[in-house]
Every structure is written in C-alpha cells, then in structure tokens.
Amino acid sequence: MFGKGSREEGWGIQVSHVDRKFGKRLVLQDIDFEVKPAEIFGLLGPSGSGKTTLVKLMAGIDRPTSGTVVVGGVQMPRLDMLGKIGYMAQSDALYAELTAKENLDFFASLFGLRGRGRRRRIEEVMELVHLTDSMKKRVSTYSGGMKRRLSLAIAMLHRPRILILDEPTVGIDPALRVSIWNELRDMSQSGTTILVTTHVMDEAEKCHRLGMLRDGRLIAVGTPGELKASANVTTIEEAFLAFGGVRG
C-alpha cells in the first residue's frame, strides 16, 4: 500500500494474545494487534506501560509467556530472523572507549557486512544521521544526542526489513528530528516496516497507525485521525486520555 515495488513485498508483524509475566508481575496482558508491511507503526504510552517489553518480544530477544509473535511469517524468537531486524534499544548500547567507526565496524561484521559494501554503507548511514565529521571520534566524547544518532545509524546498518526503534528521537534537536522522520518515511516507502515507540504526542501524529499502551494493555489501535475521531477530540493527547478512561 505504501511500497511502490522498489523492494520485494514488505514484512508485517502479528502479535496475538500475548502475555508477558516477570515472576508474578503481569507486564503485558493480552496484547493483540498487527503491524502491516511497510507502515510506520507508533507505540504510544507513558513510561512503565510495557512498551520496551513489547518491543523486545518483536525484536526477538524475549519470549512471550503466552501467545505468539510472528514477524515476516516466522514465529519469534528465531535466531536467523535477528539479521533481518534492526533494533535500537532505549539505552545507547555503544562501546564508549571505541570510536564511532569502530562501533559501526563491529556491528557491521556481526551482520555479515564486509569489504567495500560495508565501507559504503557505513558512510551512508553516518551521512543520514549527520555524523560523518565525528566518525573518528571516541563515543565517550559524544553528546547524548550524538549517541542516539549513532545508535540509530547502527540499527539501520544492515538494511533491515523491519526496523524497531525504542524512543529514537529522545535528546535529538528538532531540525535533525525532522530529517530523521523524513528518512523513516523514505524507508517505509521503499518497503521497510518501521515500529517506533514514543511518548511525544506530536511524533505520534507522523505515524501511519498508532497503538496506545497503558498499564500493559493495548487500549486503542488505529490511524491518528481515526483515534481522534472516535474519541471525539482534536489531539492525540486527548485521545489517549479518553481511551485510558480519563476525561480531560
């Protein structure tokens, strides 16, 4: 629907009746939704609502207590699927004592990129996040926003079919945020399925569809327009409050 056939058909994500318990604590309860191929799907919810837990299930590094997560037709978690998914964690998982280039080199070779192709791809993604000039600097000298951008560059490095971004634009200045969102839209147009979590309401507006998460339950799913219309409000924030059972 968004792709124009520049890549083979995109992959979707189906989450069916997923529960996730940590000990006795139920963190996710009966989550059931679908991310369609090549769309930008936003997961919206306050911190502690279970966004990161849900994202980890889809990234294939955690297993649901019950229910299934299917990515690109394959039930997760599966080791061979990890190479097709780009994941950017909420905390910047970077090797601070290494340079940006060395970090990229490391992750690129984990994904099997090598030779000239690898070099070119590293330059591409660094260009994308405006870090080309800081390529040879140690990550420990990076600012918070720069680290965030480098994490994003690493997540996109292996041209994943599915990109999962946990709070990607925290600490990034507005101008760069716009350019990152433009890039995400381009990627989705060329067939990449993108899942972002956010708690910034104006970012939520930019997603094709949204899922609202609260206390481990999915309280609403739909396009930003649909959600606002069905709650009979004008902003996403109001819609979130309405679905959460709170009238503003």
């Binding site: 990234a59 590094i61 990890l82 190479g83 964690a89 992750f107």
Partner: peptide, 9 residues
Amino acid sequence: TLQRLVATP
C-alpha cells in the same frame, strides 16, 4: 551492549 549484542544474529 550485551542486550544490543543479543539483538544481532
């Protein structure tokens, strides 16, 4: 970074 590492193949 370990968490990040296990998100790779």
